[in-house]
Design a binder for these strands. Sequence first.
DNA 1: TCGCATGTCAACCATTTGGTTAAAACAAAA
DNA 2: TTTTGTTTTAACCAAATGGTTGACATGCGA
Lengths: 214, 214
Amino acid sequence: MPDAGSQHPDAYSDTERQIFDAALQEFARKGRDGARMQAIADAADINKAMLHYYFRSKERLYDEVFAFSMRRFMAAFGESLGAAPTFRETLRVFIDGYVDFIRDNRAVMQLMVSENLAGGSALGRHLRRMQEAEHALPPRVLVERIEAAVDAGEIRPVDPHHTVLSVISTCLFFFVTEPTVRVIHPAARADWSEFVDARKEHLFDLIYHGLARP
Amino acid sequence: MPDAGSQHPDAYSDTERQIFDAALQEFARKGRDGARMQAIADAADINKAMLHYYFRSKERLYDEVFAFSMRRFMAAFGESLGAAPTFRETLRVFIDGYVDFIRDNRAVMQLMVSENLAGGSALGRHLRRMQEAEHALPPRVLVERIEAAVDAGEIRPVDPHHTVLSVISTCLFFFVTEPTVRVIHPAARADWSEFVDARKEHLFDLIYHGLARP
DNA sequence: TCGCATGTCAACCATTTGGTTAAAACAAAA
DNA sequence: TTTTGTTTTAACCAAATGGTTGACATGCGA
């Protein structure tokens, strides 16, 4: 499973990478405030002082991890969207690529969710900055594909914004609640990876039929 | 908006209720570890010592808040599911009721998500206990309705477990990521409540067409 | 070899955090 | 009024937490 776009900022040294990974994991699980610097240091197998040597403070460390993760998360939209002839194929490819991305980068998504739970102040700041810089956010590309498919009469006339939100919801939510899903869903408990693949099928089937012309 | 099932355990005094509410809010936003006892005390407008007078420790407070919230959350499935003649109506009523429940109890859902992010150890414990006691978890009722609708030929032959998970995903996820949605989605920014209602329509439309026979 | 920049660490510090205590209000029965 | 039990509070404490420091290592060009 090769990464599209590296896991860490390019200029990082080995130590910085270790710290970054450990911090991402810890922030993703415990949230900005719940995370413990000592826990990050332990997971990165370095002295706590190193954290402050490389990333001044907890706040700065969080900011760096969050900013990079958000760029990565946003970039995933475009990367998951190949050039397919039909909308049907476009949807299939997107679900496949996007779900794979989350499977390989669960912590990134957890961090995004965690920020939302906490009120999303950092998130709002970064989003607005992105919006100003690029004039529109990445999910836009998906919105446009759906608009085009509607215009071409390939699918029913649906609200593209709502539809995109629904697609993302279904692709992400079962990862968010993975522990619950593992307990409740027999198939997920037995083999998570297989379950994820089955879920791709189901999602495509459900959403495609939900959009297709009668 | 009347509550089906009270917001707090019945036997609570006024002070306990204040504490419970404040704790739920704080735990929902910051997570089990990120939450601060002082912040809960401040929000409940009481002395910090009262927290320990009524709920011994942070751990016990969290357990009590979590256990009650989870029962409430699970009960919402059944409560949102009226007795409708067709599956079409059943789906409509469920989405409507369930989304309303989350709108009125966002913190409860946030707490569930937060637990999942953190690994869901408390969640797993409680779920398993419920499973043993009741032989099946509440989402079961929805699964059964879908199975019945499939058997009756009212909808396409879909996997009911996957379908339920998809319905729940779409009903919950936009609440989970409300801060993000508010920034990205123009309509949500303007009037959230109206957006939620529009979303109910969209979700019903998308999912019903996704399930209906061609 | 020396000097200097970069990394690394144990020990330390100030503040915050969960939690306790002993005394004071308060209320209702005796 | 006295007594008895509950509720509330300010002051306090030990441990944990984010953050600092000064010494020590390591590599490398001069």
